[in-house]
Amino acid sequence: MLAAIFKRLLRMVVVMFGISVITFLIFFATPSSDPAARIAGRNAAQETIEAVRKDFGLDRPLYVQYGLMMQRLFISQDLTSFANRGQKIVPTVMAAAPATLSLVAGAAVLWMLGGVVAGITAAAFRGRWPDKILMGISMMAVAMPVFWVGEMVNLVTQNRLHDTWAFSWVPALGYTPFSEDPGLWFRSMVFPWLTLAFLYIGLYGRMLRTGIIETYQEDYIRTARAKGLTGRKVLLKHATRSAIIPIVIMFGMDFGVLVGGAAVLTEVVFGINGVGRLTYQALKVLDLPMILATVLYASFFVVVANAVVDLLCLLIDPRMRRA
């Protein structure tokens, strides 16, 4: 067991190293991307580009540039932005993290609750109208782009019905830290939470329903029924319990990706200055140090989530320990 954990941790480090190299290569070594020309701006003179190249150290060999950037990112932590040279990278990312975490954590609670309730209800009423309605809604949720749902929510809550009793409590778009005003923080996050959670409730509800229905075919369910257990007990204690394992795995992965910045579309639509939006803005101006830092930050959560999920599986399912 300990050896398995150690191996998993080692693999994590290797994967993160690989990701840092891929990101670096995408932006520094793609034939068409000349970072110096990007920084110098449109129609810059050749001399200006050369000066920028030298100033930013972009004339050095690639592996030296990579090494220097990693050293300044992780060890001295004084890496500064290319777009705004007074801005330090590490504190900027850390300042954006709480907004993303508030968004994703709140949404995660909603979508786990919603997904589990929807999945179990649909499975219990399989083929009847509650099942059909729930699965219809979940198919719609999966089919709509999340930013479009956000726009429609904004259209209703910020504009068309904002002045009615129903939505007058919704504050203007933007993020207020919890420490500043917990009430405002909550009110401003309600609709971003619901928007982000909607898609995942659809996904998880469908998956759990299919899982429970498949488990119903297993022998041990038949045994439980034969022993005279009530339908509700079989559904909740036997079928759901084993069907929920893939959901937990998926939850770990999705949570990691979203905390890392994959919630960028939700953040952009609701004006939340989180990590996703930071990454997007850095990408738009090709602010390479910022991009490297945010992508590494994101992949860190993905890799950690991956490892946690793997270890959880080892704990839950002894059969996997042999593999």
């Binding site: 890392g260 960028v264 990408l283 992508v295 992949s299 993905v302």
Partner: peptide
């Protein structure tokens, strides 16, 4: 391990 949207936006 690369978030899909970040990879797509980067490319």
């Amino acid at each position: 391990a690369f978030p899909v949207y970040l990879l797509a936006i980067s490319l």
